[in-house]
Write a protein that binds this DNA or RNA. Structure first.
Lengths: 216, 216
DNA sequence: AATATTCTAGAATAATATTCTAGTGGTTTG
DNA sequence: CAAACCACTAGAATATTATTCTAGAATATT
């Protein structure tokens, strides 16, 4: 078994890209199956048929069904993280550390979430629902990713906290205040329980996030 | 099959409470299994053994595994709804419709969430994770419940919106702003990713919720 | 080219959910 | 009270699905 979640490239032979492509393809098709029927609802045989491979091949690449699900999850999270970094980097930072900068930063955080979810609704829905699924080896990869990610965000915001532009709350609380409403709305919308799409409220959520954490 | 999720009482014979008790017991034990091993991880046989019954009995009462999972979910939501109603009713309403009343109401909403989650962490964790599991017949029951529930909340808050004490936003957005942060924090805490327990932040979340939706 | 390794196949197996048939025991009703 | 009825229990039989295994094809390394 290859034990490589389809995103790192650590080839033993060469950059055995043929196989890597296949894995990538499997991930994408598996996502579709999972989205369509749920993880439990999709059988290995469905994935085998949809990908035109064999059980042997699937198990060679991933080891078991859960590992496929984990890989899809992690790939999603990385895709999102990339967008978020891009948004924050585009803002630049470091020069003038004033209230406006903080405000724009918080908004960027919300925008990144709203935009990724709106662009990749299926993947987002999957990611929301299956964090708990990631176990074992994959769990370590994931928490490494998350640490990196959290550090990145912390570094971006901590100066503003020191400047007393953002409330001095634990970072977990700040994160929940900023992103919680977006995620809660998104979950309902993605599940088809809300009519109005998330992005219609992009500005409302961005502004509310700022109000929630700024120093009054 | 009895097709009764263990909460309504619509006996055909008499109030065949013996059977009803058994169902109730099954639900509680099933919850423990689900919490401990996840829904997929618990086999019908585990539940059978833990409840000292037979597969036949389980299938008679619930029809299939998913229906057990749904019933556990719905029972949880009703348990929470009851607490919330209690909190809001305790406030009384109708007399003086001023800003303080609205403020206290919003805080009560947050308190109810925080308190239920803190009191029933396992159940809460389960409920967070398995809404999407509810299907078919159970889905209808659930959406009936939810409508009732949403109406109740709407009725409580709409006067304050009319009085321009709370922002005039779609009720879905208001709900997300008030509860989103709590739920997001709770998910992480329940998953063991945060150290500090939710209830430590009860006041912070309550106040932030009010700031987020009050008319500035 | 020879060799080693990854990868693919699909049959065999194992684990698990679900169905089925036969009963048991309590409830209603004549 | 008895006899017909119906909810309920049991567990064996079946069906579905994940996983393992063995053999061989493809690909890379020397």
């Amino acid at each position: 078994m290859n034990e490589n979640n389809g995103l790192e490239k650590r080839p033993t032979h060469k950059a055995s890209s043929r196989s890597e492509q296949k894995k990538q393809q499997i991930l994408h098709i598996a996502l579709e199956c999972f989205v369509l029927h749920g993880v439990e609802g999709t059988t290995i045989d469905m994935i085998r048929e949809a990908t035109q491979t064999s059980v042997g091949s699937l198990y060679h690449h991933f080891g078991n069904k859960d590992a496929i699900a984990s890989a899809v999850f992690i790939a999603g999270l990385r895709d999102f993280a990339q967008l978020l970094k891009q948004y924050l980097n585009e803002l630049g930072q470091g020069d003038s550390m004033n209230e406006d900068q903080a405000h724009v930063g918080v908004k960027a955080l919300v925008y990144a979430n709203v935009d990724w979810i709106s662009t990749q609704p299926q993947w987002a829905n999957y990611v929301f629902q299956h964090r708990s699924r990631v176990k074992g080896v994959h769990e370590n990869k994931l928490s490494g990713d998350m640490n990196h990610f959290n550090n990145f965000i912390n570094n971006w915001f901590s100066p503003y906290i020191e400047q007393n532009l953002i409330q001095d709350l634990p970072q977990e609380v700040l994160a929940s205040l900023v992103i919680g409403p977006v995620h809660t709305y998104a979950r309902h919308w993605l599940a088809g329980r809300y009519e109005v799409s998330l992005k219609e409220h992009r500005e409302v959520f961005a502004e509310a996030a700022w109000q929630a954490i700024k120093v009054a």
